[in-house]
């Protein structure tokens, strides 16, 4: 009886997983066919591995440039966010000044606000008044600002769990607070840094709304924006579009295959504590 139950569970899980994967399967399958073949029968197998759609999409999406832009934005946002957030969290965790308590509370409270509530003023201030549109640095800066509260929250929680005897010993040895952070705490924080970086990096890679408000020129487009503009150009040539979507997925899928443990762990920690 028990064995039978297990088999039923397996069968249901496998069928469900297949159902979950069907959209991806159909997407990839049809990138090797012409649009005519696709419209006629989306389920038929391609006659041969026709890569024309990919060539077409790489050209029209300006793939190299948009890939490079996305990589620059995500890497810079993630790295700089890690630096400033871990440093401020360290002071919050180690110095119980009144101002720290107030600042930490305000930061955490601001996590509640949805992006939409800053969206319009951000566009007005940075895009309009300061004229910083179509500049990757603007998007990086805004990206860091938006993710600071979340990262500080996670770092602070982690740092609080590190015993205070450790920094006292370092201080007695004559280390300054700054030096203690870089020499002792940063290495200890490795697990939480990986978690936060994965979370922030993934979000930044997939970002569309904020990025699209600032980056409108084709040479500053990210992959999400390039996919969006490619797919809304009202052409009826669907197969190259699907190839464009696959191209948008491949980089992140490779990342997922190698770092899936950290990604999933990051999600759990991020949502449970956040």
């Amino acid at each position: 009886m028990k064995k039978k139950g297990k088999w039923i569970t397996y069968t249901i899980l496998i069928l469900l997983l297949i159902a979950f994967m069907v959209p991806f399967y159909l997407l990839v399958l049809n990138t090797f066919k012409t649009t005519q073949e696709f419209v006629l029968d989306p389920f038929s197998l391609p006659k041969f591995l026709n890569l024309d759609n990919y060539k077409d999409a790489i050209e029209k999406m300006n793939f190299k440039v948009s890939f490079r832009n996305t990589a620059i934005i995500s890497l810079s946002t993630t790295l700089l966010n890690t630096v400033v957030s871990s440093m401020i969290a360290y002071v919050f965790s180690r110095k119980n000044w009144k101002i720290n308590k107030i600042l930490f509370m305000v930061l955490v409270a601001s996590m509640v606000a949805p992006f939409q509530v800053y969206m319009i003023p951000l566009v007005k201030l940075y895009g309009g008044t300061l004229g910083l549109s179509n500049n990757l640095a603007t998007v990086i800066y805004v990206g860091i600002g938006i993710t600071i509260p979340f990262s500080v929250f996670l770092y602070e929680g982690f740092l609080n769990s590190i015993p205070r005897e450790l920094d006292e010993a370092a201080l007695i040895d004559g280390c300054s607070m700054e030096k203690t952070f870089f020499k002792i705490f940063l290495p200890l924080m490795k697990p939480i840094i990986v978690t936060v970086m994965v979370f922030v990096g993934l979000g930044s890679w997939n970002e569309y709304l904020m990025t699209s408000l600032f980056l409108t020129k084709s040479e500053t487009r990210t992959l999400s924006i390039a996919a969006f503009t490619f797919l809304t150009n009202k052409s009826a040539d669907y197969s190259p579009m699907m190839a464009g979507l696959v191209l948008g997925i491949i980089p992140i899928l490779i990342f997922y295959l190698f770092g899936q443990k950290h990604i999933i762990e990051g999600v759990v920690q991020g949502s449970v504590k956040g």
């Binding site: 400033v84 957030s85 440093m87 401020i88 360290y90 002071v91 110095k95 720290n100 600042l103 305000v106 930061l107 601001s110 606000a113 509530v117 800053y118 319009i120 003023p121 951000l122 007005k124 201030l125 800066y141 805004v142 860091i144 600002g145 938006i146 600071i148 509260p149 500080v152 607070m177 700054e178 952070f181």
Partner: peptide, 30 residues
Amino acid sequence: NIRLFILFVVPAMFIWITVVLIPFIYGLFI
């Protein structure tokens, strides 16, 4: 302590104030 505050607290707070707090208040004005 002042040095620590300027080096470690001010950068993150400056970014957050310019990206989140000021736009939020300015948004209420809009």
